[in-house]
Simulated assay, not measured.
Amino acid sequence: MSSLIGKEEIDIELNAPADKFFDMICNTPNQVSDASADNIQKCDAVNGDFGNNGVVLHWNYFHDGEPRVAKEAMEDIDRKNYSLSFRVFEGDLMKEFKSFILKLQSIPKSNQGEAGSIARWTFEYEKLHEGVAFPNSLLDFAKQVSKDVDSHLIQGV
């Protein structure tokens, strides 16, 4: 019997500084569509303000060849450690998952001023039933969006 509860993680090497990457994802997620237009069409704050705990974000994105939507609450913002969580509560993922939480930590490569950072995405979830397979393409999606944001930030630095 397989477990309904799972966790997947991916580390993505970035050239941008950890604080810049975190800042875009946390404080200006509406600009992610500028950086990764093939994947993210739009992000709006539905309830609250970008960069604040509890803000509800509505995403329009393109995944696995299909247009998709998600509503999620931004939680557990830790500006010192460049980490935050998104709790998905509505949209396409909720057709197969009882719960889905995306966690991001943007980790500086070095305290000695070494360029770059690592984006660590962690997906914690509970499937609705055992027939649901984890969509590994979500890890690739997070990697591609992160790389696009990284390129966007490096061009703007």
Score class of each variant (00 low, 15 high):
Met74Tyr: 00
Cys43Lys: 05
Phe62Met: 06
Leu93Ile: 09
His63Phe: 15
Ala45Asn: 08
Asp23Pro: 07
Cys26Ala: 15
Ala119Met: 09
Tyr125Ala: 01
Ile107Thr: 04
Gly51Met: 03
Ile101Arg: 08
Phe97Ser: 00
Ile25Ala: 14
Pro29Ile: 04
Ser36Asn: 06
Gln41Gly: 13
Glu126Ile: 00
Arg87Glu: 06
Gln144Lys: 11
Ala119His: 05
Pro17Phe: 00
Leu14Trp: 02
Gly48Met: 05
Glu8Phe: 07
Met94Asp: 04
Asp78Cys: 02
Ala73Val: 12
Lys143Ser: 14
Asn81Tyr: 10
Ser146Pro: 07
Gly54Glu: 04
Ile10Gly: 09
Met94Cys: 06
Phe86Thr: 01
Gly131Pro: 09
Thr122Phe: 09
Phe141Cys: 06
Gln31His: 12
Ala18Glu: 09
Ile10Arg: 07
Ser151Ala: 15
Arg120Lys: 15
Gln144Asn: 12
Asp92Val: 03
Ser33Ala: 14
Lys127Arg: 11
Phe86Trp: 06
Phe134Ala: 03
Tyr82Thr: 01
Ile40Cys: 15
Asp92Met: 02
Lys95Pro: 00
Ser151Arg: 15
Met24His: 03
Glu72Pro: 03
Ala35Gly: 10
Ala18Leu: 10
Ser146Met: 08
Phe89Met: 00
Ser117Ile: 07
Pro67Thr: 13
Gly156Leu: 12
Met94Gly: 03
Leu84Tyr: 06
Val46His: 07
Asn27Cys: 14
Lys20Arg: 15
Gln105His: 06
Ile107Leu: 12
Glu130Gln: 10
Ser85Leu: 02
Asn30Tyr: 15
Glu90Cys: 04
Asp11Pro: 01
Ser99Val: 01
Asn60His: 10
Ser33Trp: 04
Phe50Met: 01
Val132Glu: 06
Ile154Asn: 10
Asp38Pro: 04
Asp148Tyr: 10
Phe50Pro: 00
Glu96Arg: 09
Val56His: 07
Lys109Glu: 07
Lys80Leu: 10
Glu8Leu: 05
Asp19Gln: 13
Trp59Cys: 13
Lys71Ser: 13
Gln155Asn: 13
Leu93Pro: 02
Asp140Val: 12
Asp150Cys: 10
Leu57Gln: 02
Lys147Gly: 00
Ile77Thr: 00
Leu93Asp: 07
Ile25Lys: 08
Ser99Glu: 02
Ser99Trp: 01
Met24Ser: 03
Lys80Met: 07
Asn53Phe: 12
Ser3Ile: 09
Thr122Gln: 11
Tyr61Ile: 04
Asn60Thr: 04
Phe141Asn: 06
Asn47Ile: 07
Asp92Ile: 01
Met74Leu: 09
Ser3Gln: 11
Lys71Glu: 11
Lys143Thr: 15
Phe22His: 06
Lys7His: 10
Val145His: 05
Trp59Lys: 08
